[in-house]
């Protein structure tokens, strides 16, 4: 396999934010004592007067952002996934989603790949929490190209958006040239007729790699990158179900409440199809190097291959 460039999507976020900042003076950034590591510091360098450190006070930060948005500013608000979707959940619900405030919640350090900080920081429930909020757009990009495009799309979209980014550097597999991102549209990365893997975040690349291995074993595997968990690209999921008859979902998130369950709910009602959910299996994480943890928790191409083989 060729050496691939690796970039953490939190870096993509910081870079895209800075670019957007130059174009749109109404963009402001709020941070909670994590400017460096969430990469909003990149924006702050160019626009110190538009970057507001809120201190370690996430609940206030989210609701303050809601207030700022009502005056015509477009706040991008950042902390770790645990402390945006988690700590400030009810502020997000009642002060952002319910009043339909134009706030972009940009959460970094999502999932198990946080690594050594351990379970208290490894948020595998954020997608579930955000998905249940009426009107909330939920996006989990897979690589640098998609992440930067998603940040721009979030700005263009009028209304609350939750964007999920990772700490770990992950392979960049999208070609920049001619790439477009559309909220609510999935992307077929590999054609297939026997099985479909629907993935998002860092599991997309794993799914593509798994499909290549499965191909050699005679299993034609479709791979769909479903960066937008909400609104879900229902047509694409239903077509995959009808045409391939088996679905595996893959996400760096609890199998409860995330992409897997979104797909299952849709299929149960509109096209009952056997589904296997690959993800974090209703357990807390623990400390360790990110790459080791991803293997241990079955968030790997190898595990997807195993799952596919036992599914056929």
């Amino acid at each position: 396999m060729s050496e691939q460039k690796r970039i953490a999507t939190r870096d993509s976020y910081g870079n895209a934010l800075k670019e957007l900042g130059h174009l749109h003076p109404e963009i402001v950034v709020l941070d909670a004592d994590l400017a460096d590591t969430t990469r909003t510091g990149i924006f702050k360098k160019d626009f110190p007067e538009r970057h507001f450190d809120c201190g370690i006070a996430e609940q206030n930060m989210l609701a303050a952002a809601a207030g700022m948005s009502t005056c015509g500013l477009v706040p991008f608000v950042s902390s770790f996934a645990m402390f945006t979707a988690g700590r400030a959940y009810e502020q997000v619900r009642n002060s952002i989603a319910y009043p339909r405030c134009n706030v972009k919640i940009c959460a970094t350090h999502a999932g198990i790949s946080v690594g050594e900080d351990g379970a208290s920081h490894q948020c595998c429930e954020d997608i579930a929490l955000m998905r249940t909020l009426p009107g909330m757009v939920v996006i989990c990009p897979a690589d640098d190209v998609e992440a930067r495009a998603a940040v721009k799309a979030a700005y263009e979209y009028e209304g609350p958006v939750y964007l999920r980014f990772g700490r770990l550097a992950v392979p960049v597999f999208h070609e920049e040239e001619g790439y477009t991102f559309q909220i609510g549209k999935g992307e077929v990365l590999h054609p297939g007729t026997d099985l479909t893997i629907i993935a998002n975040g860092l599991m997309v690349k794993e799914a593509v790699d798994a499909a290549a291995v499965l191909e050699q074993k005679g299993i034609s595997t479709r791979v769909i990158n479903m960066a937008t968990v909400k609104p879900l690209d229902e047509e694409l999921v239903l077509a995959a179900a009808r045409e391939t008859g088996r679905i595996i979902t893959a996400e760096e998130h609890s199998v409860i409440g995330g992409l897997g369950e979104a797909v299952c709910s849709l299929l149960a009602e509109k096209c009952p199809t056997p589904v296997r959910r690959v993800g974090v299996q209703d357990v807390f994480g623990h400390s360790g190097p990110a790459l080791e943890l991803l293997k241990e928790f079955g968030l790997s191409a190898e595990h997807l291959v195993e799952e596919a083989l036992s599914f056929m």
Binding site: D117, G118, A119, H121, H286, S287, E296
Partner: peptide, 13 residues
């Protein structure tokens, strides 16, 4: 500390 399998987690547990 902070290694896989250790009872010394990154944050107290």
């Amino acid at each position: 500390l902070r290694k896989v399998g250790s009872y010394l987690q990154g944050h107290p547990c």
